[in-house]
Amino acid sequence: MEQILLHINGEDREVSVNPSWTLLYVLREVMDLTGTKCGCNTGDCGACKVIIDSRAVQSCLIRAVNAVGKNIETIEGLSDGYHLHPIQQAFVDCGAVQCGYCTPGMIMAAKALLDANPHPSEEEIRLAIKDNFCRCSGYVEIVRAIQYAARLLEEEKSERL
């Protein structure tokens, strides 16, 4: 076991890990951050996406020890859990949530996209969530929610100015 320091959602957290453990395992099983989901553990479904240094990545593909010194964002860090982040609000308001299991990964993929590209085209949105599977929907409301989130974020920004 190894003691490591992970910078997650703006906080430093010291955890004891086996070097072979994935970040997904450490998030869910060691740190009780169960908002990040496991759908395949092979990097194919996107349910476990988190943001590491501004990029959305599958947390099942990276070992926790390799995430040391990086800025990690998970679904739990997006809001205080009561006041929703604009992307979360957009997913609710657009009916983009069905069973909800893909939702955290989908929202993290959307956040990484909108952080880098505040006005994505529909095609860019679809590409950003290409490896986020949703079995309930046809991705229609999810794409719409991300478009709507872009508008909400824009409004929020102009209100702040």
């Binding site: 859990g81 979360q88 909800g100 939702t103």
Partner: peptide, 20 residues
């Protein structure tokens, strides 16, 4: 158009599915 009753929990990662 009514979102599922637990949509806010689901978007925040608060929903506890069995494996959680």
């Amino acid at each position: 158009k009514i979102p599922v009753i637990d949509a806010a929990q689901k978007v925040t990662g608060q929903t506890r599915y069995t494996d959680d």
